[in-house]
Design a protein around this nucleic acid. Structure first.
Length: 628
RNA sequence: GCCGACAUAGCUCAGCGGUAGAGCAGCUGUUUCGUAAACAGCAGGUCCGCAGUUCGAAUCUGCGUGUCGGCUCCA
């Protein structure tokens, strides 16, 4: 299954990165999701977070002042900023944000100190009752219930005051509103109280705040840059893919996009072949009996597309793993057969909520570079070591630096704890042997497997999870009764490794487009070189040169339009083609071409080479699979 | 799925009750040019769909579809 998770934007990314440098005072246990503790914990785990959270208070002050009667939800610090949830009578508009910003600036200029006060619990509750803040009252009631349940006394109600504004809050805060740095309100959106659809709908205002103007500007620049690089936009501009309402959540791949896809796929196939993989392909449309056996029918059915076929329920596969076992079981396996490595570029369908669909990163159908590897327990560590090597090599093709997390046995794990311990020891051994830094996420494994997740940061510093390696002890091996015959002729259970390296090809391509802003390295670029004849009389030679380049496996085109050379260069630049080869009288005469690099500076010296030398040079660079 | 916004030419957008517009791209012609936009002309639209209000709807209303920002979900 090798499931790739799309980190749900900033929130999840923040979760993943939040490893605060801790001082005893601000040390928090991760509160339970949706708990009153979590609602109180404003995410202020260091000084910057404290400032962000304080800015949320200042914003709440402004909103309360401008729109009396507003009910306050919660207002934590998040990655890059903060938000606050409000219950208001009418929807907020961008014009409102400007007004709120102005009011905030006034509060900051007034430099109100933040004052912490503690009230006895009953008084605290009455305090927020009086101020008609039912959400705050609810948080306090929850805390009281929790205290009662655990037999501990209800702690005092801590409130923070600054100027006219008071909020229920655990803190900490900066000393005064004047310590709030340069900020900007970014967006308003909807959110439910406690993330629960059945609870009141609130309006959430997002903002960002930084210690210095330079940092704020840099952040806003990154946001603007991210928008410019948006793969949905660049995909149209570079003619790679498009989306159409006849198939929401699925891309239509244009010739250049498909070329890009095939290039990535071919590289992975080549890597897999070098590492002892076999490739398989299993049906997309499968009886529900498979999913009953795997457990998906009970746990994942809502995400599956189910069809009625002659009265029998079938489904489009959301994962490849269960079907891979049919190939494993198609004959008796010996201990000598293992490891068996089955790669599958399988097309998967998952019924994502319509509101969650987005470009290539959140789709309803996609293809994973999936594999299922069946090993003996004693082979697990070496296999994982090998996988870490493959990941490092392939990410290197794109200049990406992998980072690792190791998630261990959760409380609801199935299977023999002793086996878990062994598997975890092997994974740890492999990670240590690889000499890579990694973070342990205790109890964060899937219920059937400890796992390694691999993350990268893109060119704009955004974190993405790509690869995953899961050591499945029970789901495939036991539910599908997989065995191999050992040296003594006895049946034994193999371990199944689920892994993906790119993850979903769709998502990977979306990330690459944004990472490179569409300017792919030579080996990836769908069109690697455009040959530019200066005048019509050079077109025949240009075509001939394209033939020479194609003969060396390069993807090249001629621009034989009637435009001037300048215009052709501009077009090639806009299409982010890595190389242009200019042909004029001088070059045609000598069977040469003048090489122009994408993005070349005006005064950059250019080389003129003979056709074969040119082809050699580009082919060598392309075959190296490096970023330029 | 839920909350909010949006949907006009291939693309980016203007028009917001009275005959549908621009730039780029496209096509045709002229130009044959040395490193990021030659010149001229032509063509291009179920103004997302369906209903309604109105003498008249791209424009107002309702429903549907899709997209975007979030929420939610993520074996």
């Amino acid at each position: 299954m090798a499931d790739d998770k799309a980190p749900a934007a900033d929130a999840a990314a923040a979760d993943a990165v939040a490893e605060p440098e801790i001082e005893e005072e601000t040390l928090f246990d991760a509160p339970e999701r949706g708990s009153a503790d979590e609602l109180l914990d404003a995410g202020a785990h260091d000084e910057l977070d404290a400032m962000r959270h304080s800015t949320a208070h200042v914003m709440a002050e402004a909103v309360l002042d401008l729109y009396p009667g507003t009910q306050l939800g919660i207002g934590p610090a998040i990655a890059d900023g903060f938000y606050y949830d409000f219950k208001l009578d009418r929807p907020l508009t961008p014009a409102d944000l400007a007004k709120i910003e102005a009011r905030m600036a006034a509060s900051i200029a007034a430099d109100h100190p933040f004052v912490r006060r503690e009230l006895p619990p009953e008084e605290g509750r009455a305090f927020f009752e009086e101020r008609a803040q039912p959400f705050k009252v609810e948080i306090l009631d929850d805390l009281a219930a929790k205290a009662k349940a655990s037999g501990s006394p209800m702690p005092p109600t801590s409130i923070y005051e600054h100027g006219p504004f008071v909020d229920l809050c655990k803190g900490p805060h900066v000393a005064s509103t004047g310590k709030v740095g340069p900020f900007k309100l970014l967006a308003v959106s909807g959110a439910y109280w406690r993330g629960d659809q059945t609870r009141p709908a609130l309006q959430r205002i997002y903002g960002t705040v930084w210690p210095t103007q330079e940092e704020l500007d840099a952040y806003l620049w990154r946001r603007a840059e991210a928008k410019k690089r948006d793969h949905r936009r660049l995909g149209v501009q570079l003619d790679l893919y498009s989306f159409h309402d006849v198939s929401p959540g699925s891309a239509f791949w244009h010739p250049k996009g498909q070329l890009l896809w095939r290039t990535l796929e071919a590289a992975m196939r080549e890597l897999q072949a070098r590492n002892g993989y076999d490739e398989v392909s299993t049906p997309i449309l499968v009886s529900h009996r498979v999913w009953q056996q795997s457990g998906h029918w009970d746990h994942y059915r809502d995400n599956m597309f189910i069809l009625d076929i002659e009265g029998q329920p079938f489904s489009l596969k959301p994962m490849n793993c269960p079907e891979s076992t049919f190939i494993y079981r198609s004959r008796l396996r010996s201990y000598r057969d293992l490891p068996l490595r089955y790669a599958e570029f399988g097309r998967l369908h998952r019924n994502e909520l319509s509101g969650a669909l987005s470009g290539l990163t959140r789709v309803r159908q996609f293809i994973q570079d999936d594999a299922h590897i069946y090993v003996r327990p004693d082979q697990l560590q070496d296999e994982i070591t090998g996988l870490l090597g493959m990941i490092r090599e392939s990410y290197g093709w794109f200049g990406l630096e992998p980072r690792y997390t190791f998630a261990t046995r959760p409380d609801d794990a199935i299977g023999d704890p002793a086996l878990w311990d062994r598997a975890e020891a092997y994974i740890k051994g492999a990670l240590d042997a690889a000499g890579v830094p990694y973070r342990v996420l205790p109890k964060d494994g899937t219920f059937y497997a400890p796992k390694i997740d691999i993350y990268i940061d893109d060119a704009l510093g955004r974190e993405w999870q790509l690869a995953t390696i899961q050591a499945d002890l029970t789901m495939l091996p036991e539910r599908f009764d997989l065995t191999y015959i050992d040296e003594e002729g006895k049946p034994q259970r193999p371990i199944a490794i689920h892994r993906a390296i790119y993850g979903s090809l769709e998502r990977f391509i979306g990330i690459l487009v944004e990472h490179f802003a569409g300017a792919f390295p030579l080996w990836v670029a769908p069109v690697q070189a455009v040959v530019i004849p200066i005048a019509d009389r050079h077109v025949d030679a240009a075509r001939e040169l394209v033939g020479v380049l194609a003969g060396r496996g390069l993807r090249a085109e001629v621009d034989d339009s009637s435009n001037r050379m300048q215009y052709k260069i501009r077009t090639a630049q806009e299409q982010k083609v890595p190389y242009m080869v200019v042909l004029g009288d001088r070059e045609v005469e000598a069977r040469e071409g003048t090489l122009r690099r994408r993005g070349a500076a005006k005064d950059e010296p250019q080389v003129t080479l003979g056709w074969d030398a040119l082809a050699d040079r580009l082919a060598a660079e392309s075959e190296r699979r490096t970023v330029a």
